[in-house]
Amino acid sequence: MPTLFLFGASEGGLFDFDATLPLMAVQVVLLTFILNALFFKPVGQVVEEREDYVNTSRAEAKKKIAEVKRLETELKDQLKEARLEAQKVILEAEQDSENLYKEALALATSEANASREKARREIDSQRDEALNQLKSEADNLGDLIIERLLAKK
């Protein structure tokens, strides 16, 4: 311990002012400059850089979120439109097929009716023909029978 510096120590007291005061003031001022250079400036720089970084990152993220939301609504709209379109196409196709079916059915029905009609007419005419033939043959036979009966007499 630096007893070398000790020169008489009996006086003193709690309120013993001496050169400690100005020296301590100088020391604190020096400490202020040292801490400013070693602590406040560098740490402040790092902290403020980080704050800037966080702020810009947050702004960017917000922008990106807005962009994503915009794209999402756009896509939703597109999807809705596409769905409507698809429904329309399906409806049209259904109607088309129904029309085609009806047309085909009508055609087939009319053809069938026509051919049935034709067949009936043919049958009728043939029947008439056959009847006429039969009638004429019966007439011939009747004539023949009458001739033969008359000839016997």
Partner: peptide, 23 residues
């Protein structure tokens, strides 16, 4: 000990050594 100091003397000026040592 209250109010006792370790004095360092430089010429005419005296300072409280214990304060500076701890500080």
């Amino acid at each position: 000990e209250v109010g006792q100091h370790l004095y360092w003397q430089f010429g005419n000026i005296r300072i409280h050594g214990q304060v500076f040592m701890t500080s």
